[in-house]
Lab assay of single mutants.
Amino acid sequence: AFSSEQLARLKREFNENRYLTERRRQQLSSELGLNEAQIKIWFQNKRA
C-alpha cells in the first residue's frame, strides 16, 4: 500500500508524463522509498 504522500507524488508525475524513463523511475524509487517495480506497475495500472 502507498502512503497518501507517495500517491500524491505519483499522481503529479503521471500528470506531467504518462511514461517514465528508467532514470526517472530510479529517482522516484529512491525519493519515495519504493522499489522500481512498484512504481512501474502503478504507472501501468494508471494508464490502463
Rank of each mutant, 00 (worst) to 15 (best):
A1M: 13
A1C: 13
A1P: 11
A1I: 13
F2D: 01
F2G: 02
F2S: 02
S3V: 03
S3W: 03
S3C: 04
S4P: 14
S4D: 14
S4N: 11
S4C: 14
E5W: 08
E5N: 06
E5Q: 08
E5Y: 08
Q6S: 04
L7Y: 05
L7M: 06
L7D: 05
L7H: 05
L7G: 02
L7N: 05
A8Q: 09
A8S: 08
A8F: 04
R9S: 06
R9N: 04
R9W: 04
R9H: 06
L10D: 01
L10H: 00
K11H: 15
K11F: 13
R12H: 11
R12N: 09
R12P: 01
R12A: 14
R12Q: 14
E13F: 04
E13P: 00
F14I: 03
F14H: 02
N15D: 14
N15Y: 10
N15C: 12
N15T: 09
N15G: 09
E16M: 08
E16H: 08
E16Y: 07
E16V: 07
N17L: 04
N17Q: 05
N17K: 04
R18K: 12
Y19V: 10
Y19N: 09
Y19R: 07
Y19S: 06
L20R: 00
L20C: 06
E22V: 13
E22H: 12
R23V: 12
R23G: 12
R23Q: 15
R23K: 14
R24G: 05
R24E: 08
R24Q: 11
R24C: 05
R25N: 09
R25D: 02
R25T: 15
Q26K: 13
Q26N: 07
Q26C: 07
Q27K: 10
Q27P: 02
Q27T: 10
L28I: 07
L28V: 03
L28P: 00
L28S: 00
L28H: 00
S29A: 15
S29Q: 05
S29E: 05
S30T: 13
S30P: 01
S30N: 11
S30I: 14
E31V: 05
E31G: 02
E31T: 04
L32M: 07
L32P: 00
L32E: 00
L32R: 00
L32K: 00
L32D: 00
G33D: 06
G33P: 00
G33T: 03
L34V: 09
L34H: 01
L34M: 07
N35W: 05
N35Q: 11
E36Q: 07
A37K: 10
A37M: 14
A37F: 11
A37P: 03
A37N: 13
Q38F: 10
Q38G: 02
Q38L: 14
I39D: 01
K40Y: 12
K40F: 13
K40I: 14
K40W: 11
I41K: 11
I41L: 12
I41M: 12
W42P: 01
W42K: 01
W42A: 02
F43D: 02
F43P: 02
F43H: 00
Q44V: 07
Q44P: 03
N45D: 10
N45C: 14
N45T: 10
N45Y: 10
N45Q: 13
N45V: 08
N45M: 13
K46L: 11
K46D: 04
R47L: 15
R47E: 09
R47H: 09
A48K: 13
A48C: 13
